[in-house]
Amino acid sequence: MPTARNHFEVLGFPPTYFIDRAELEARYREGQRHSHPDRFSRAPASERAQVLQRATDLNDAYRVLKSDVRRAEYLLSLRGIDLSEEAEQAGGKKRALDPLFLSDVLELREELQEARLHNDGARIASMGADIRARMAQETQRVAAGFSRLSAAAKDDAAALDALADALLKLRYYQRFLDDMTAHEEATA
């Protein structure tokens, strides 16, 4: 399944964080119009396999580029910074997060546990709002980081580190939110 082209190339964008959402949608649609398997339902099997691959690449590229976080992570991975868990599992160097941040998240989890125990819906909702606000802040840091990167002539290691840091935090927050909603859905 490896694809020769990276996600940006698949959709015809330069590898940048700043992508026009409407343009992304338009290019995605145009791509699907030409390479969706439905257009080739009568084609020979070999051609259909190729088309299936093209359509898959397109969907994957779209999924990554559409999300600010995934797009940012992907850009870092193109620069050799792999934030994925599998890289960590495979013995890659673990990025150390600010211990203060970690203990903060731990506390949040305990607070959530507590709120659930007391069926305190209002508190859970306000925690959710708080997390979203923090995420918005980190997302801004990410955007600022990328605009600094693109302004600089060459990659600045400190800027990359700051980006990785913000993205990892975002990941923690996202997981926290996911857990929260999964639990609410399951108990609804």
């Binding site: 399944m1 898959t56 969907n59 994957d60 779209y62 999924r63 495979a90």
Partner: peptide
């Protein structure tokens, strides 16, 4: 809610 066709890989140990 991933758009199809799609694929994904993951490495385990």
């Amino acid at each position: 809610n991933s758009r199809i066709p799609t694929g994904a890989r993951q490495v385990f140990t």
